[in-house]
Design a protein around this nucleic acid. Structure first.
Lengths: 357, 357
DNA sequence: CCAGATTGTGGTACCGATAACACGGTGGCG
DNA sequence: CGCCACCGTGTTATCGGTACCACAATCTGG
């Protein structure tokens, strides 16, 4: 259960503050001090161009004397580019997305872009608002792990405004753009086949709503594994739940209440697994003894402390770096005519939760 | 060991791209279409003001017909405010800071500010660059967990430019501003006293460089606890190391090599603890049997999966919300004359790693 | 020795919005 | 009936840069 925030309603204090000097030096001030035109100063701060060494020296002197820093706003307005790009994820606190964001931020910074971070909390409305804001901000591109297929509307809006974007982790059927994905179907199949190889026949699946591509694809993998093993699909074993710990708990509780309950469970991601495990324990049972468990995505720090989750680990950082690189290519007008669809293989890591050996 | 990123050098593809229409509708287009002046359109999009219902209707119609979205750049330039603020942390991947960032982002968004996320990777130079960028961007305020005391220079720079900022998690001696802190000294003392109460007399401490206030304060707490128990301080038991898992491992290795090695260790934070535990295990020993361990900050998801770390958990979210709220007060000119110094108590959580009971 | 290129610099007009003021029309009130 | 307040709207200047073109001075080569 997330900590309640006792200071949510911190009492408002209304008092005057000692205003600091909003030191607003402009290019014209620099020009005046160094006895040249603003245009020449502009040339100096943008390097390049032909400026005599002597003039350049004088201008640079004036700049450092006045502590002048050019305004990105003005520059952006006039150049029609902001040097800003956005990363949108449904939950930064999910270690998978944290890694994505971190990597994206680094790539962007190296390419001299600033990053606006947006956490949609898997809420379609927040996502819409956030995207509108980004359009207003004239962000030059967006790396986004969309909330669901219904994000299509807002992505089309981005496209209308000529803002390139790259989807990561999730595709959206009608949206045609660069994409960086994991191998959800294959990975899921491998996980479930592993459970089957351990002798499990009744295998549950806790998954979020079917309008998220990863959920669909992983369900597909789950079904493929079952059918390949000649196990009939029992719809009662598929529990739909929110893609977070509380959803995982709820889903697992439902599965445990079944008459003929599963002996193993596959969860759609790491946080769902976490909640599911908590539910198993709350029911006085244990993983993997009473219920074996496998999932997608690792929880790095947890696994280092205690290698427990048998998981299909995805290269989260690569999602971030690669997604951002593809985006930068689009922004800079490079990038192939045809869209890029990169599928990154996961790494199957067997640990305790599946009960192997 | 963090995953190597195999796609760091993704091959560059150079091809033309099908350019989308950079639909650049301006306020003037809307004005033309609705047969009014740009000023009137401006009045409509900023609500308020006195505009006849009929005109407003016509303008709104034109706006939606053209799909017009006002440019934040232009607005910012003219209004002299950007509606942007920044959150700077040394490591977003640290669950503590992830929570801070997430909370800050939410508070900011609710107040209609956009957030620029900056991860300094605990590198003073990156921090300097990032802050320069923010000044250029005319960010209206900054919530920052500074790299160290040597961040003072860049913070003074911010102040010179009239950008208000709030320090979180760490103070800096000469910098006088709003601050949201944990009770490092008290918390550390409590942790170490707990170890002492369990019978430990040789207690190690793995800590980062002394120019970070939390490190100093926690050392102070460590020393206070020892001296209160009449235990002499043995400098050999204080290992300095980077504030991350690898630092923790290195530090613990050094402690384990001591002739008279500690029976318990206190680490300055969660990630250091993680590395320290790995080092203990690598040495063929176990926590808490061979070495008891306590630390600052929890790793939430890890602890839910496996309640192991005995820790002083800090209310990370509150650091974020409160820090951002204080910042917003400053920005809006409210906020007390005298600086705010908020100290949030941590929660002492006893689990396995200390070997209690 | 002069046409033509090159170099360093300045002038002007924007980028897209808003602040501040101006102005014609309506209605209330003495 | 005329003055004034107010309403709705337009005009102009400006925010802080840069693109584009102009222009004088110097350099090149035939």
């Amino acid at each position: 259960m997330p900590k309640q925030n006792q200071y949510e309603f911190w009492p408002k204090i209304v008092l005057p503050i000692p205003n600091m000097s909003p030191s607003n030096t402009t290019i014209r001030d620099v020009a005046r001090l160094s006895g040249v035109s603003p245009m020449t100063v502009s040339r100096v701060i943008n390097d390049s161009e032909r400026v005599s060494p002597e003039t350049r020296r004088r201008v640079e002197e004036a700049i450092s004397e006045l502590g002048y820093v050019p305004s990105r706003l003005a520059r952006g307005l006039s150049r029609q580019r902001t040097g800003t790009l956005a990363v949108i994820v449904p939950d930064v606190a999910n270690p998978f997305f944290t890694a994505v964001v971190r990597a994206a931020e680094e790539v962007a910074r190296r390419a001299d872009y600033q990053v606006i971070l947006c956490d949609t909390r898997a809420d379609l409305n927040v996502e819409r608002d956030v995207i509108d804001e980004l359009i207003a901000h004239r962000a030059e591109g967006v790396v986004i792990a969309p909330v669901s297929d219904r994000s299509a509307a807002q992505l089309r809006r981005l496209a209308e405004f000529g803002v390139p974007f790259v989807l990561i982790d999730r595709t959206i059927p009608e949206i045609d753009c660069d994409v960086v994905l994991g191998d959800s179907t294959g990975g899921a199949r491998q996980l479930v086949e592993h459970l089957i190889s351990l002798g499990h026949r009744r295998i549950g699946f806790i998954v979020e709503s079917d309008d998220v591509s990863t959920a669909r694809d992983r369900r597909r993998g789950y079904e493929a594994a079952l059918s390949a093993a000649g196990i009939a699909l029992d719809p009662a074993l598929v529990a739909h739940a929110a893609p977070d710990p509380s959803g995982g708990s709820a889903g697992m509780r439902r599965l445990l209440e079944l008459e003929d309950r599963p002996t193993a469970v596959f969860t759609v991601n790491n946080l769902v697994a976490l909640g599911a495990i908590e539910a198993v324990r709350a029911a006085g049972l244990e993983v993997p003894d009473d219920v074996a468990l496998v999932c997608f995505d690792d929880i790095e720090y947890a696994s280092r402390l205690y290698p427990f989750l048998t998981a299909m680990e995805q290269p989260a950082q690569t999602f971030g770096t690669l997604g951002t690189q593809l985006l930068l290519e689009r922004i800079e007008g490079r990038g192939p005519e045809r869209r890029h669809e990169v599928v990154l293989p996961g790494e199957f890591i067997v640990r305790k939760s599946c009960g192997a050996k």
